[in-house]
Nucleic acid binder design. Sequence first.
DNA 1: GAGTTTGAAACT
DNA 2: CAGTTTCAAACTC
Length: 529
Amino acid sequence: MQNSLDPVTRFCTSLAPQLMQNDVNDEQNVRVLDIVGSGGQLETEDPSSQYGEASQLERTEQMEDHLNNCMVSSQSEKEDNKVETPMQFNCKPAVLNLQRGLRRRCLDFEMAGARRKSLDNVSNSSSNMLSQSDEKITTNDKQLVPMKPGGESSRCILPGIGLHLNALAKTSKDYKIIKCESLAYGRQLSLPNSTADIHSPTGGQGPANEEFNQNSPKKKRRRFEHAGETESCKRCNCKKSKCLKLYCECFAAGVYCIEPCSCQECFNKPIHEDTVLATRKQIESRNPLAFAPKVIRSSDSVPELGEESSKTPASARHKRGCNCKKSSCLKKYCECYQGGVGCSISCRCEGCKNAYGRKDGSFIGTEAELDEEEAEACEKSVAEKHQQKIEIQKNEEQRLDSALPTTPLRLSRQMVSLPFSSKNKPPRSSVFSIGGSSSGLYTSQKLGKPNILQPESKFERHSQIVPEDEMPEILQGDGSPSTGVKTASPNSKRVCPPNSDFGPSPGRRTGRKLILQSIPSFPSLTPQH
DNA sequence: GAGTTTGAAACT
DNA sequence: CAGTTTCAAACTC
C-alpha cells in the first residue's frame, strides 16, 4: 500500500512547495486558496513532514500572504471553479477519508458561519479579515475533490462533528495534504464508516451547470464509483430535495455538492451559500445533531496523547441508532451497518443481525436466536468481506497514526463521542458550542487563534489543562457506557468494528481525553496577537 | 438501466 | 409523539 502511495506522496511533496512559492499568478493563488480552504489538515501521509517547524512557519506565512492576495486580487469565483484538475476529481485519498467530511464542512459551512458571525460582530476587527478570506475560501472550496465518505458509502467515519477543522487548514502542509488526498482518492478504501463524508465541494458550477454538464448523472456517478473501485466517489443523486435536506448525503455530510453529483435543482452549492446556511440552521434548530456524524466513535485515540490511546479499540456506534425492520441490519439500509458499527441499545431495529454487533449483544431468545445459524453465516461472509477492508484501513491508520500525530481533524474525530441517544436530546447549548454544526465554526473561530503550527505538545498541554469535568455534558462519555462498549459485547464477535482504526482497548477514558484535546485544535490562520 | 425495497427524514 | 408521507440510497432483476 505504501508503495503505491509513494508516487503520490512524492508528487505532493514536490508540488506543495512550488505552489507556495509562486504567487504570481492568479490561478495559482486560487489553487492555494482552494487547498487552504478545503480545510486541509496538517496531517501528511508522510509523517516526516518535509518541513521543519521553522520552515513550516515560514510557509504558513506565505500561505497567509496568498490568502491576502487572493482577497484583494482574486475575484473570479467562476474561474476558481475551473481550477480544479482532473486529478483532484478522480483521485481519492487513500487514507484520510474520515476527515474530509469535517474539513469540507468547516470550510463550507462553518467558515461561512464564521464569516457571518464576524459580520454580526463587527467589533471584532480581526474577524473581518477572516470572514473575507473565509468567503473566498468557501467559494474556492467547491473545487475540492469530492470525496465521499469512504465509508458511507463507504464512508469512512466522519468523525467529528464538524468542528474547527477549518482552523487547520491554512498551512503549507495542508496544501500538500490535500493534494495528496486528491491524488490518492481513487484508492480510497471502502470502509463503512462515517457518515460524514467527505465530499468536496465542487467546483463552482451552478446548479444549472451541474445539470447540464453532466452527460448522464448516472453515468457520471458510476464512473466515479468505478474510479474509486469503491463507492467512495459516490455523490448524491437527489431529485426533489434540492440537496437541502438531510436526504441529500452531501448536505447531510456538510459539504457542497460537486460536479460528480447527479442531483437536480441543486441548491447545495457555494453560490447558494445563504440558502444552505439558512436551511442548515433551520434543521439544526430542529435537531442540533442533524449534521453530526452518524457514526460516533466512543473511543479513539490520539496518537500523540499517549500510546495507550492509540491502542484503544474503536468502539463506535450510531449516534441515534437504527430502526431497521426488514434488513436485519445486514444491509446498508441500516445506518449502523453502513457505518460499520454494531447496533446498540439505542437501536430500535427488529431481528438485528448486525455483523458488527447486535443490538442486544447476544441471542436472547428472540428471532435472532432462531436464525442464529443464518446470522452466523451472514456474519461470516460479511465479516470476511469487511475484514479485508478493515485490515487495509488498519494499515492505513497505523501508518497515519505514526505519521500524523495529532491533527486537529483527528482530534475532532475523537470528539465525536456523543453520548445521548436520539431520544435524549442533547443540550443545545452544548451541542452548538461544541461543534458539529456550522455554529461550531463560530466557536472555533472565536476561540481561535490557536496557531496551527503549534507543536503537538501544545495540544497536549492544553488538553491537560482542561479538566474533564469541564467537558460539556454531551461530550462526556457516551452517555451510555453500555452502548459504548457495545461493540465489545459478548456476542459481538467483532470487537473492533471495521472503522476501528485503533487497536483494542478500553475506551471510555481515552475517549474523554480525546475530546478534551480536540479543543485546542481549532487553530486558526489568523495571526496570534 | 429500470424497477423495487428499505429506512431515514420530513411532515402532519 | 405517533403515524404517514416523501425521499434517495441500496438493492434486485
